[in-house]
């Protein structure tokens, strides 16, 4: 029962592991090169799921601040962190908060790109702030940014893989690994 409970609590992590195993199986066991590549894609997607799960919070929303929130934010963040911020990231929050302060003073009438960035950083570090900006209201954006990169990498890898597969097909007239190996063995 406890097991079921724990699975239900973190089912996205379980799914990531299941997906990963499926991908790995396809990578290792499939004979067809394209199927291998599909397995590779599943494998990479599993990792993306894992990362996105890290950033997930119950009831949180996208990490975009509105103008008024930015104005409030700096004050509260300034002292809120000292009380119960996660100890891992305490110093980070402090530093970020100071910068927000400075930026907010420079651009008193609105947030610019910099302010925005810093705000998201506050959120990303999961700080608990007492007033307008509550970190738990926002999903962690950093992991999403990372995954954008990872997706690009994944697509590129898939592209190169498919290109090589195409080259192999041109050379051997087959995309079955065993047939290609057979040809190499007999041809040489």
């Amino acid at each position: 029962m406890e097991l079921l409970q724990s699975i239900a609590d973190s089912f996205n992590y379980w799914i990531y592991i299941i997906l990963m195993m499926i991908g790995l199986y396809a990578l290792v066991a499939k004979n067809n090169l394209v199927k291998k590549l599909i397995g590779m894609s599943i494998f990479q997607t599993a990792i993306i799921l894992f990362y996105v799960s890290i950033g997930y919070k119950d009831g949180a929303t996208i990490p975009i601040l509105y103008e008024h929130q930015a104005h409030h934010g700096h004050h509260d963040a300034g002292h809120g962190d000292a009380e119960d911020a996660h100890h891992d990231v305490e110093h980070a929050v402090e530093e970020a908060a100071k910068e927000i302060h400075a930026v907010a003073e420079d651009h008193a009438d609105g947030h610019d790109a910099h302010a925005d960035d810093h705000d998201t950083l506050v959120d990303s570090h999961d700080a608990h702030t007492s007033s307008a900006i509550h970190a738990e209201d926002f999903a962690n954006p950093l992991v999403h940014v990372l995954m954008l990169t990872a997706i690009v990498v994944g697509v590129a890898t898939l592209g190169v893989g498919l290109a090589i597969t195409q080259k192999l097909y041109g050379e051997f007239g087959s995309i079955e690994e065993s047939e290609i190996i057979e040809q190499i063995r007999t041809g040489k």
């Binding site: 990578l27 590779m40 893989g161």
Partner: peptide, 30 residues
């Protein structure tokens, strides 16, 4: 070409493991 394909598979697995490891580090340390 076939060697490159195998390398691609192995290399991607290796890099993905690394990425996962970094993910776990990130969970703990932020």
């Amino acid at each position: 070409s076939l060697a490159a394909f195998k390398y691609l598979i192995m290399g991607t697995i290796g890099a993905s493991f690394y990425l996962l490891g970094v993910g776990y580090l990130y969970i703990k340390t932020g």
